[in-house]
């Protein structure tokens, strides 16, 4: 028999959960919070249950990171929007899903970093070294890549619309093959196409 207090708290928590419809509605109704919000209760029907958590992500938007040494840092989902990170070293860092939109990354060392699904919209990457980095599904819309080194980088499914290249940009692909691999791009400045 469930104690009265616990039942009340469960009802309160259930009241805050938005309604779920469809096949899983019944199961959802049995999967409820008991106690405080960090505590989960698995329903009686399950043969196996596991819970997972993740830490908070870092906010560095607008921070002055010029010349900073952040090599091998683990900053997934970090917010670097409009950060001044000129000549910053992020070599080997884990930056999946990070947001670098409008960040100043001129001459930054981004070599061998994981920038999967990162947002680099309108980032200034002039002279940056991103060689060997994983930029799969990254957004580089309007990014300035003049003089950037991208040799050995993975750009599968990356979005390079309106990105600025020139003859000093070291690219790891030829354009036709890149298109075939799902990349979308339309260089704003002239480049070997």
């Amino acid at each position: 028999m469930m104690p009265e207090r616990r039942r009340e708290r469960r009802d309160q928590n259930q009241a805050t959960i938005p309604p779920v419809t469809g096949d899983h509605a019944t199961d959802h109704a049995t999967l409820v919070f008991v106690g405080d919000e960090s505590e989960w209760s698995a329903p009686a029907w399950c043969d196996y249950s596991a819970s997972y958590g993740k830490p908070d992500f870092t906010r560095l938007d607008g921070a002055d990171l010029q010349g900073a040494d952040l090599r091998a840092a683990r900053l997934p989902l970090a917010d670097f929007r409009a950060a001044a990170a000129r000549a910053c070293s992020l070599a080997g860092a884990e930056l999946t899903f990070s947001d670098f939109s409008r960040a100043d990354l001129r001459a930054a060392d981004l070599s061998n970093t994981c920038l999967c699904l990162a947002d680099l919209t309108e980032a200034d990457l002039r002279g940056a070294d991103a060689s060997g980095s994983d930029l799969m599904k990254a957004t580089l819309r309007g990014a300035d890549l003049r003089g950037a080194r991208l040799m050995g980088a993975c750009l599968d499914d990356a979005d390079l619309e309106e990105a600025v290249f020139d003859e000093t940009t070291e690219l790891p692909f030829d354009f036709e093959r890149a298109r075939a691999r799902g990349m979308t791009f339309r260089p704003a400045a002239g480049l070997r196409q």
Binding site: A42, W45, S49, Y52
Partner: peptide, 9 residues
């Protein structure tokens, strides 16, 4: 951030 999950089967 601060996400947590539970998986039941």
């Amino acid at each position: 951030s601060d996400a947590s999950s539970v998986f039941c089967v």
